[in-house]
Amino acid sequence: MVVFTPEQSDFAKSVADFCKRETGTREQRNRWTNNGDENHSQELYRKMADLGWAGINVAEEFGGAGAGNVELCIFLEEAVRGQAPIGGIGPTLITAAAYEKFADDALKREVLAGVVAGDSLSISMSEPEAGSDVGALTCRAEKVDGGWKINGQKTWCSNAHFAKSILLIARTDSSGGKHEGLTQFHVPAGTEGLKINQIDTLGGREVNDLYFTDCFVPDEAVVGQVGNGWTQLMAGLNTERLILAAMQLGLAERSFDDTLTFIKERKQFGRPIGSFQALRHRMADHATEIAATKELVYAVAQAADADPAKMMPREASMVKLKATEVSKAMTIDGMQMMGGYGYAKEFDAERLMRGAIISTVFGGTNEIQRDIIGKTYGL
């Protein structure tokens, strides 16, 4: 079983207590999210930043806590389990890790100081014809005097409507293979030539279309090396998929907790519905799957901490696949076991289900994760 140090256990309790105090009731969560229309409260996120949590995995030299992946997963698991509306944290931490690895010193210090203070970030890869096949992207950055001029469209970009800046992946050279000639650029919010349009989704305001029209950024906006964007993206997969897995673990646990409370209290045929074997066995299965997922999440986190430079495509894909599939199964079953109440907005079940289902799509679809895992076995 997962065993935390006393300090890690205390940290988990601190995050859980914060969420119970700030987001423990539906009324509180509605206040933070404009009655559920937003999945991220920047105000609440800054309160977490004041406690040092926004920069938990940012190196101490940049003002962060310098904690490892285990502590990062603890924070995300407990924050999501506590229903803290900080949906923007995943893209922010994924993007911050890229800046910390590849940006020059001046840009790194600027961006990471903002992250520690509670700024949100966004990363933009997908395009209308480049989703799972990110290497097919066509948004282009052309070298001009003193910088780069960007033209093209991006889509499904999380956080862009409130992020301090966007880490853009654009094509700077088309002469080689599709994974060559890609470059990462720092694009501050409000840059002239950038237009952001909301995409309406089941989850409310989460993602956006981005349109770049002769959008100029200076040479200093290049993050890492020109033409090396694909390799830089691959270097961040361990962190990205761990973040997504830890968040979905917390969501699955919350769904389990809420479902358990409901089926203990809801009575039909003169007894709690949870006492019927059909529901009791179903919950036993979900409890086992969630426990196994937690073991996998923290095993991968520990492995990543032991060797931060090691690429773990199999393990990273496994942990993302497992956590999101378990979360999806738990939330769908939770709605079923709650009957009509699971469908009603009076309860959180329907919102949890929406958050779980989309997790099997973003961050690399689960079909792609299975393909990656299969390839690591020579298939």
Rank of each mutant, 00 (worst) to 15 (best):
residue 136 A to R: 15
residue 304 A to M: 13
residue 293 T to R: 00
residue 52 G to Y: 00
residue 343 Y to L: 15
residue 92 T to H: 00
residue 166 I to D: 05
residue 158 S to T: 11
residue 23 T to G: 09
residue 275 S to E: 13
residue 40 H to T: 02
residue 263 I to A: 10
residue 158 S to K: 03
residue 213 T to A: 12
residue 73 C to L: 03
residue 368 I to Q: 09
residue 147 G to S: 10
residue 124 S to G: 09
residue 123 I to E: 07
residue 320 K to S: 10
residue 339 G to N: 05
residue 311 M to S: 14
residue 26 R to Y: 05
residue 240 E to I: 04
residue 69 N to Y: 01
residue 367 E to A: 13
residue 94 I to N: 06
residue 51 L to C: 01
residue 318 M to W: 12
residue 211 Y to W: 11
residue 201 T to S: 15
residue 284 A to E: 15
residue 152 G to Y: 02
residue 346 E to H: 15
residue 349 A to G: 12
residue 72 L to R: 03
residue 236 G to P: 02
residue 258 D to T: 11
residue 335 M to E: 10
residue 290 I to H: 00
residue 145 D to R: 13
residue 123 I to G: 07
residue 209 D to F: 15
residue 329 A to L: 12
residue 355 G to N: 12
residue 35 N to E: 12
residue 43 E to S: 12
residue 309 A to E: 15
residue 123 I to M: 12
residue 116 V to C: 09
residue 51 L to K: 05
residue 35 N to V: 07
residue 79 A to M: 06
residue 361 V to T: 12
residue 272 P to G: 06
residue 324 T to C: 13
residue 10 D to H: 04
residue 296 L to F: 01
residue 349 A to P: 13
residue 199 I to C: 10
residue 30 N to F: 09
residue 200 D to G: 15
residue 309 A to M: 13
residue 159 N to Q: 08
residue 71 E to K: 02
residue 235 A to F: 13
residue 73 C to D: 05
residue 19 C to G: 01
residue 190 G to R: 09
residue 160 A to R: 03
residue 179 H to S: 14
residue 20 K to D: 10
residue 303 A to T: 06
residue 125 M to L: 15
residue 172 T to H: 01
residue 116 V to N: 09
residue 111 V to C: 07
residue 137 L to V: 14
residue 133 D to A: 15
residue 211 Y to C: 08
residue 216 F to D: 00
residue 261 T to M: 05
residue 174 S to H: 15
residue 176 G to F: 11
residue 18 F to V: 02
residue 168 L to M: 08
residue 245 A to I: 01
residue 217 V to W: 07
residue 321 L to R: 08
residue 198 Q to I: 15
residue 188 P to H: 08
residue 20 K to V: 04
residue 32 W to I: 09
residue 171 R to G: 06
residue 227 G to T: 03
residue 282 R to H: 06
